[in-house]
Simulated scan of single mutants.
Amino acid sequence: MPQSPSADLSVAGLTKSFGSLQALDDVTFEVGAGEIFGFVGSNGAGKSTTMRIILGVLAADAGTVTFGDRPIDADVRRRIGYMPEERGLYPKMKVGDQLVYLARLHGLSASDAAERTRYWTRRLGVDGRVGDNVADLSLGNQQRVQLAAALVFDPDVLVLDEPFSGLDPVAVDVMSEVLTEKAGDGVPVIFSSHQLDLVQRLCDRVGIIGQGRMQALGTVDELRSRGGVRLRVDAPAAPHGWADGLRGVVRADYDSSTTIYLDGTHDDQQILAAALATGPVHTFASATPDLTEMFREVVTAE
């Protein structure tokens, strides 16, 4: 394919309906060359539909998908490594034979296909199972083989739907390393996941989709900062509601410690004085919401 692998994957204005259900509504985002993009949302939000349109499995009602300056045609599609959420391997076919077969379908010679199969099964820790049928593997090992199938032909783009599902911590670490390395080679990587701690740790940028629309888009830091200014105060003797009514306080959550949501007009010293008036203060610090909190707020706002 004449396209350089160091190119951007662009999704612009995707719209898709299934009868009366509008699955996607003007979905737009870009995954840069060498960027890891986390695509998150609730079940049914539109993640898998978007990925299937990128792959050409579904046709959009409107909108475009391009890689570099090219539309996603058959030649480009052949260079995309795809990992579906539902495992798409042949259950009664041996692991090694299957990976070689898939690599050959993507244009590799028999010797190159065999070499890449050896490399990726060893790298992903399933080299001892190449003679087994996929159906005889554990779910975690099936997931590793599914990733090997997406990588065995050295794709120019990676599109992975829930790649960390069912993996043990060691396998999660291996997969994280692989995705980081592929991005380091200039490959655009997009993956969906409900494991937001992994998304926060791995991704350069994140898109949150809900009800078929992009609800939030940006770097992890940008999304986390959308939560506004917060203070975390550990004042064990403070009664419930002690921070209510203070200047700049939007609301406060009173649990084992108090999380105070602020609008920027607050006075730290006034809040600290109010906390100290209730007794000892063990912690008084600004707090940035993590991606899980941000996601929860976006979904709640939907």
Rank of each mutant, 00 (worst) to 15 (best):
C203T: 07
P155F: 14
A183C: 11
L202N: 02
Q146I: 07
A149M: 11
D156H: 13
D168M: 06
A148P: 03
Q211R: 12
Q200W: 03
E177T: 15
Q146P: 07
P163V: 11
A150Q: 02
E181Y: 12
D185R: 15
Q143G: 14
V145H: 05
E177W: 08
G210W: 07
S138L: 11
A150D: 05
Q195V: 13
I208A: 01
G186H: 09
Q211Y: 08
D197R: 04
V199P: 00
E162Q: 15
S165G: 10
L139C: 08
L147C: 12
D154M: 09
L160N: 01
L160E: 02
V178Y: 04
D173A: 11
V157K: 00
S193T: 09
L202W: 04
Q142I: 12
L196R: 01
D197N: 13
V189M: 09
Q143P: 06
G184S: 13
A150S: 14
L179G: 06
A171E: 11
A148H: 06
D154E: 15
Q143Y: 09
Q195R: 14
Q142V: 13
Q146V: 09
S193C: 05
V159N: 02
P163Q: 10
R144W: 07
D185Y: 09
L198R: 00
V187W: 04
V206L: 02
E162F: 11
Q211V: 05
G184P: 06
Q195E: 13
G210Q: 14
L139P: 06
K182M: 13
Q146F: 10
V187E: 03
S193E: 01
G140Q: 07
K182D: 07
Q142A: 11
A149I: 08
P169Q: 14
S192V: 06
Q146R: 09
R201H: 14
R144A: 14
S193P: 05
V172P: 03
V145F: 05
P163C: 10
Q143C: 07
L160G: 03
D161Y: 10
V157Y: 03
L158V: 08
V199A: 00
V178S: 05
I208P: 00
V172Y: 10
L151N: 02
L179C: 08
L147K: 09
G140A: 10
V159C: 05
L147E: 02
R205I: 04
D156F: 12
L151W: 05
V152R: 01
P188A: 10
C203P: 03
D173M: 07
Q146Y: 07
A148R: 07
L158W: 06
V145Q: 03
L151Q: 03
D173T: 12
F164V: 02
P155C: 09
L151R: 05
F164S: 01
A171R: 08
V157T: 07
D204E: 15
Q200R: 10
D161N: 11
D154T: 14
A149K: 01
L202D: 04
H194P: 08
G184L: 12
F153G: 00
M175A: 08
N141I: 04
A149P: 05
V172K: 11
M175G: 04
V178F: 06
I190W: 00
F191K: 01
F164K: 04
L160C: 08
V159L: 14
A149C: 08
L158G: 02
A150N: 04
A148V: 11
L167T: 09
R201I: 06
G186M: 09
L139H: 15
V159M: 04
D156M: 10
D154S: 13
